[in-house]
Computed example of a mutant assay.
Amino acid sequence: MSTATTTRIALVTGASRGLGRNTALKLAERGVDVILTFKANEAEAQATVRDIEVLGRKAVALQLDVGDSAQFAAFADRVRRVLATTWHREQFDHLVNNAGTGAHASFAETTEAQFDELMRAHLKGTFFLTQALLPLIADGGRIVNTSSGLARFTFPGYAAYAAMKGGVEVLTRYLAKELASRGITVNTVAPGAVETDFGGGAVRDNAELNAQIAGVTALGRVGRPDDIGSAVASLLSDGNHWITGQRIEVSGGMML
């Protein structure tokens, strides 16, 4: 089903705050409608919906815990109903697998519970949510998975988190190969350090850490949410249909 002459619709997970929210707003600025997910804070999600509507686009917020794959079949059914009632469509165009969680612990002190939580949210969640939504993604659509600069460079305390993101990057290449017959492109965006509340907001709020990261970044500062949201929106724009299976680091040249 081609959607070239209709409004594009993107589904962005974890879009009630942080990078997901910014991505949703940047997409709306480019004329894309949004289905966004939130884990617990519906008020934040509805605020994002209102901000998208101010930009002249449609948006719907749906609850989803990407770390609980048992929810995915029912979630796909809700997406199907929302598409029918809000857009009179059977499919959407873009999937942005953004939602996740963080954990900071040395390798020696990482618990199995921490490891499993990261695995469910980042790797298993991305794998099986994409699988559940695949019938609802239009041929010629796009998928963007979220990795991290930490899958390339290393900082102590992120071994488990980075391992999951490395898995996401490998999965991206396999999806790009297997979904190519439907014209669906699949890429990874890997942010560097960004000033958000992720990880307790340390990069944003700790001036010493912020300066340290800026000092090892070619462009001389820490990333901002707009840097990442704009990159994802650009990747989903019409001119980038020939990019697939790629890891695109959006870090300002961190740790080159």
Rank of each mutant, 00 (worst) to 15 (best):
D238Y: 08
R173A: 07
H122A: 05
L36C: 09
R142T: 07
T244R: 05
Y158F: 14
A59W: 01
G239F: 03
M255V: 12
Y161E: 06
G125Y: 02
R221Y: 00
A132E: 02
S16W: 00
E249I: 10
A176V: 09
G157A: 11
N187F: 06
V32W: 01
K26R: 11
K177W: 00
L209C: 09
V144A: 10
L95Q: 09
A211V: 04
T5W: 02
G192K: 13
L11I: 12
V250Y: 01
G100S: 05
F72I: 13
T217R: 10
T6W: 00
D68H: 15
E90P: 13
R182T: 09
G31Q: 07
A218M: 04
L27A: 06
S69N: 13
G56Q: 05
A202V: 14
R21W: 00
V186T: 10
R8C: 04
A40H: 05
E42K: 15
A70R: 14
V189R: 08
P225F: 04
P135T: 08
Q212P: 06
A84V: 11
V232N: 06
M255S: 12
L83C: 14
G18S: 08
D51Q: 08
G157V: 12
K165E: 00
M254Q: 15
K26V: 04
I143D: 01
G67W: 02
A162Q: 08
G192S: 11
V34W: 00
A176W: 02
V203F: 07
A73F: 04
E117P: 10
A4F: 05
A176H: 04
L95P: 11
V54I: 09
M254G: 09
A214L: 03
E178L: 11
A202Q: 10
L27M: 03
G157C: 12
A162C: 09
H104W: 04
G220Y: 01
R142V: 03
G223H: 05
T5F: 08
E29P: 07
A151E: 04
H104R: 14
A138N: 10
A103R: 13
A108Y: 04
E112D: 12
N187T: 11
T85E: 05
E90D: 12
H88Y: 02
T86V: 15
T110S: 10
A61H: 07
A231W: 00
K39D: 00
K39A: 09
E249Y: 05
I52H: 07
L133R: 13
